[in-house]
Design a binder for these strands. Structure first.
Length: 594
DNA sequence: CATGATGACGCT
DNA sequence: AGCGTCAT
């Protein structure tokens, strides 16, 4: 297979975080919205802005208050905060929804970010060729061609129709597989919309850089094809910084060294000249790129290589005492721990390396690692604290830390696959794992094997395995409550079980209601008259979702009750910390902040 | 004060 | 292993 004959797509969810929030609260669909984190300071920082709001000049990175000035009707969704820290789990879960659809339909999918995926369609297109489809303009209702800015729908149809005929008539069929690729991407985007409720845009081209570039040409809810013959005239008008990888200092270097503005202007330079200035590797990459050649493969990775939690402490909020630092070590450690546990249950692997990143007032960034022998909040927090203490210039007996800290991050990585240890979380995650990993027969076999093993594995053994982890007993207690509840509701729901999944997994049940609040997602956009108003929250609920919705309230109430007990359990955790340096003061400090 | 949290990766 | 770059 010639590398230049690949068909690559880049799918990009349109203002993803906003869509995730709108799926939960459909009443905001069509209105100018954004998502911000940390609302106290100037309305928080916007990390996503929808297209309705962009029309008013609202941009990512702006403060919420500034957005309100530009657009008085602007609605701000706030990122969930846990332990005083922004928590992005809601978007990670929604991302998983999207990737389930992609992985179920394509073999080669690369998760490029939380809301972007590369797909290598080359094989799929080859298979499609045998079918001898008769494609018409109706199969490409949101497709555009790179290099044409069409103002009206009629204009789009006219130009696309001409191209469609051209590439079906072309004896060499140079563009025919791009056409088939675009056809597949129209289908998958429709599927994503139907199965998740989310809109996206896409680019279809011969390589990743081109796919990424042209994806941005028509947004939102549209897709763009970038043919090889369009490269020259488009690159002549493409600013260097628009090329992925050249958005920063490297791009600046190119602009200054070669005195160019647009990427196409580099064509007049020899390979040698490019390499002299940019280095052998980058020079070669650039030389090929501007001629439409870029060979970076779409990697087949589905899982994260690292799981991390971090927080900035800008200005006056900086950390200047050991107590504050300890508190945040625990907060961050807890987040990483929770996600690692979930990851271990789902993916049968364990992170082996903990990396601590911190930025000091001296403006230096320090990175230090240590091995992970056991998943435990206390271990993560104390390892982090121990490392940070090494940079304290103040007396060891003082509570004051100098220089102050402006950023702390904890990252877990270097995963070891196929671990055979089990935990309570493993037992409860069967259903979730099954649903998420059915992408190949290999995985299915894997799952079944694990399940059989799990039958033999006793819960007792798993508890004994992790005696120092304080969170597990909490989870156990929590799940026990829900187990009863789950059984009850199953009976209740049996009569009208159409929309209810028959999953008996407590985890999957639990996560449906708490981590994602998916109950509200069932049909976000449908305009339908089968609504009734919930007596508890006064929201309009589709009538066939009402049983689940009522369960949601029940679960919610239980959770509130659980939180009360939780604070008690947490304090017992503090007693434990006391042995390892935690003072009562710092505990109170932490509580008062929450 | 203050574009934040989180990833991947390359260089040395 | 640690630091810097780039990206969303």
């Amino acid at each position: 297979m010639n590398i230049d004959h690949r068909v690559i797509a880049l799918i990009d969810m349109d203002c993803f975080y906003v869509q995730v929030e709108q799926r939960l609260q459909p009443e905001f669909l069509g209105k100018p919205c954004g998502v911000s984190q940390y609302y106290t300071w100037k309305g928080g920082g916007l990390i996503a802005v929808n297209y309705e709001a962009r029309d008013f000049g609202v941009k990512r990175g702006m403060r919420g208050e500034q957005a309100k000035e530009l657009c008085p009707d602007f609605h701000i969704f706030h990122v969930q905060e846990v332990n005083g820290k922004a928590n992005l789990n809601r978007y990670r879960d929604a991302s998983a929804d999207v990737f389930r659809v992609l992985n179920a339909n394509f073999k080669l999918v690369e998760k490029a970010s939380i809301d972007e995926a590369y797909i290598d369609l080359t094989e799929d297109v080859q298979k499609l060729k045998d079918k001898k489809l008769q494609l018409t303009i109706n199969d490409f209702s949101t497709t555009h061609l790179a290099g044409f800015t069409t103002k009206t729908e009629d204009e789009r149809i006219e130009i696309l129709n001409k191209w469609l005929n051209d590439c079906q008539l072309d004896d060499e069929k140079r563009n025919y597989d791009l056409l088939l690729g675009a056809y597949l991407i129209e289908q998958i985007r429709k599927k994503i919309k139907d199965q998740t409720g989310f809109f996206c845009s896409a680019g279809i081209a011969r390589n990743k850089i081109l796919a990424k570039l042209c994806c941005g040409f028509n947004k939102p809810k549209k897709q763009t094809i970038f043919t090889q013959s369009d490269i020259d005239h488009i690159f002549d008008k493409t600013p260097v910084q628009k090329i992925q990888g050249l958005g920063g200092k490297a791009g600046e270097r190119v602009v200054e060294l070669f005195q160019v503005e647009y990427i196409g202007q580099l064509r007049k330079y020899s390979l040698d000249m490019l390499q002299t200035s940019m280095g052998e590797k980058d020079g070669c990459w650039l030389f090929n790129l501007i001629r439409g050649i870029e060979t970076t493969p779409v990697s087949n990775r589905n899982l994260y290589k690292s799981i991390s939690a971090s927080k900035n402490f800008p200005g006056k909020t900086c950390l200047d005492t050991i107590d504050k630092i300890r508190t945040w070590c625990y907060n961050l450690a807890e987040d990483v721990f929770n996600r690692l546990e979930k990851d271990r249950a789902e993916n049968k692997r364990r992170a082996k390396l903990l990396t601590v990143i911190c930025t000091l007032a001296t403006n230096e960034t320090i990175t230090r690692s240590c091995p992970i022998n056991e998943y435990s909040i206390d271990r993560f927090a104390n390892d982090t604290l121990r490392i940070l203490k090494q940079y304290n210039k103040n007396s060891l007996t003082s509570n004051i830390y100098t220089p102050v800290i402006h950023h702390i991050g904890i990252s877990a990585g270097k995963f070891l696959d196929n671990i055979n240890t089990k935990s309570i979380a493993d037992l409860f995650s069967k259903q979730t794992t099954k649903i998420e990993t059915i992408t190949s027969t290999e995985n299915i076999i894997n799952c079944q094997e694990e399940e059989e093993e799990e039958e033999d594995n006793n819960t007792e053994e798993n508890i004994l395995e992790k005696p120092t982890t304080t969170t597990l007993p909490i989870q156990g207690d929590f799940f026990r409550k829900f187990q009863k509840f789950d059984e009850q509701t199953k009976i209740q729901l049996k009569s009208e079980n159409k929309t209810t999944t028959s999953s008996s997994s407590i985890t999957s049940f639990f996560s449906r209601y708490t981590s994602n609040e998916n109950i509200l997602n069932c049909s976000p956009n449908k305009i339908d008259d089968h609504y009734i108003t919930c007596s508890k929250c006064h929201k309009s609920i589709l009538i066939w979702n009402m049983p689940e919705h009522e369960d949601f309230h029940y679960a919610h109430e239980l959770q509130i009750e659980e939180n009360k007990t939780n604070s008690i359990i947490k304090s017992s955790k503090t007693i434990k910390r006391k042995n390892t340096n935690q003072t009562l003061d710092s505990f109170i400090n932490k509580k008062s902040k929450m």
